[in-house]
Design a protein around this nucleic acid. Structure first.
Lengths: 347, 347
DNA sequence: CTGAAAGCGCTAACAT
DNA sequence: ATGTTAGCGCTTTCAG
């Protein structure tokens, strides 16, 4: 009971001013580094009182005046994929560096939720957002752009929207994966992907798949594409497809969660990797090199995507004048491991 | 150029009031569901104007009055472990259900950063926080509790702090893992853990390890404990230990990232799992059942931890009177797969 | 070098 | 049933 008496009272700038025997203005100025106007003396007193009272400026009040909160928001479409954590880590690190705080939400791929969250962020005067869009709220996106609301679209492209965009070259990623399989003696290559009409990501990886086949002189007869309708059904769908198409000797999985399902399916069907079937997955996850056999993957610089997206956003926020819209396209990388090894010639 | 002219002007409650020909009070009341006082007529008009103007109340101004933001914060200590993303998903889902928004940050295990973030959250008038503490800011924690700042501590316990606490029974988890190995014929069991003096998590899992040995009549002579000093050195340290202690026939890994390092080390040493060494990991990650051989693990209900923690926090926030502090202890679960299979008797 | 006063957008007594 | 008014805590002209 001795020592400091702890009472949960909010201490305001007025309290500091009073105790320091100065005006609120003075306190405000000093706390905002606007020191040119003050005696070293007053500065010292004020800072001491601030310390004693443990005064913390109320960010709400501050934001209300300036209409800047130093908060950015991120709208993700799922929390299940390791890829997004790394992106998030990058975003958070940038925030840390630049003195921003971060609000986060999960649209879960639902356009209604996406819209709701974006509006909530705006009501909270969040300075800008990073978003992996559902791509199904076109008029909303257009409105945001028209209002010059600072925004960075990541991972996907939104058709006919002129906004900052940070993506990985998915066509190239698809191409690299499939080209690698072809060069290692595979010929009947299945591409597994998600069925999502508007998502550029999947479309482009498949485009890369097709380009690779074409570049090896293989025509549409050699297109084997399986569109998974939901992660739950993936296992069944993959097994069925492989049974129905016994000629398949290589698989390009466009998503790391699908890759796990693929591996399980192959095990059930008693197909050996890479002897019977070579596989290449997308995203160099933490487990990729530890599974059996170690998985060849397309690596995406997920951390950097997050880091740069946030930088881009904060730059736009800070640049008062009409900001320049930027496209950043990261390059994927092929990480070769055993799962795709060359077919040995039978002697 | 026809149609709506888009101008990025903030529309305030005054604009709505004016256009609807009523006072700000009326608009405010109607928007806050305080409808008893108004004609259906006015309500209709106001709502129509709100719609037309696309008016969104400024949450900053709102919060400034009420000193409630409907935002909670979460302080995590890393973004690298899948476990935390499931927790986060749970927290986010609760926020979604209860109409809260979420701020997130990463202390990265650094007490200084932790302190900074907590203060930032408080300045932003965040209504409460969920935290996986570094456990190295004792006086700060005490102050938060003394000030009755709504808080839920997860995953770890903070010594002599009376705050809401949501954890998993780690002693039991350790016990289950090791007991299982013992019952399957292992006798020289290594426990791999992180060296962190104050973290209850690791201490308790090791406690469970010891209890299991004791319950099987094994004394301290049978304690094999390896404390990893950093994830980077893990591989080396594990290999060295296993070489130096050739009698080891079972390993209990207290952390899922360490498990991956363990598996790699075993592969390098040409030790067969489960024939030479049986292993049990912590956290039933997405890849646990897909690696080779499929991994026996202790599953933690990570999603529920997040979900319940946030519920607890929001309950505390909402309960005006002195809230009851709660402890929630979740139970871990043993998931048996091949990596720990019984040693076959040699005939 | 310092302070008084207005106002950011909203809510909530307190009128009427 | 609706409006007037006084702040919430802060910044920022404008005056001194």
């Amino acid at each position: 009971m001795n020592g400091k008496l702890v009472i949960a009272v909010r201490v305001t700038i007025a309290d500091v001013a009073e105790k320091a025997g100065v005006s609120k203005t003075t306190v405000s100025r000093i706390l905002n580094g606007n020191l040119d106007h003050n005696t070293p003396e007053t500065i010292k007193t004020v800072l001491k009182v601030v310390e004693e009272l443990e005064y913390r400026p109320n960010a709400l009040a501050k934001g209300l005046k300036s209409m800047k909160t130093n908060v950015i928001g991120i709208v993700l479409s799922n929390f299940r994929n390791e890829f997004w954590f790394k992106v998030l880590e990058g975003v958070e690190d940038t925030c840390k560096e630049q003195g921003y705080n971060l609000m986060i939400c999960n649209s879960d791929g639902d356009p209604k939720l996406e819209e709701q969250y974006i509006k909530e962020f705006q009501m909270r005067q969040v300075d800008g957002i990073v978003i992996n869009p559902t791509v199904r709220n076109q008029s909303l996106y257009e409105k945001l752009v028209a209002n010059k609301y600072p925004m960075v679209v990541i991972n996907r492209k939104i058709p006919s929207i002129h906004a900052n965009n940070v993506v990985v070259d998915n066509i190239k990623g698809g191409f690299m994966a499939v080209n690698h399989l072809l060069e290692n003696g595979r010929k009947h290559i299945l591409a597994i992907t998600f069925k999502h009409e508007n998502i550029s990501t999947w479309q482009e990886r498949i485009e890369g798949y097709q380009e690779a086949l074409t570049s090896h002189g293989l025509t549409e007869n050699f297109y084997y594409i399986l569109e998974i309708t939901s992660l739950r059904k993936a296992n069944q769908q993959i097994k069925k497809y492989l049974v129905d198409h016994a000629m398949i000797d290589g698989v390009f999985s466009t998503n790391n969660m699908l890759t796990l399902e693929l591996i399980e399916a192959l095990k059930k069907l008693d197909k050996k990797v890479p002897e019977d079937i070579g596989i290449v997955g997308y995203d160099d996850t933490i487990w990729a090199k530890h599974i059996n056999p170690p998985l060849t993957t397309i690596r995406q610089p997920s951390y950097d995507i997050g880091k740069e997206s946030a930088k881009l956003l904060i730059n736009e926020i800070k640049s008062k004048e009409s900001p320049t819209i930027k496209d950043i396209i990261f390059q994927p990388e092929l990480v070769v491991r055993e799962s795709s090894q060359e077919i040995k010639m039978i002697d």
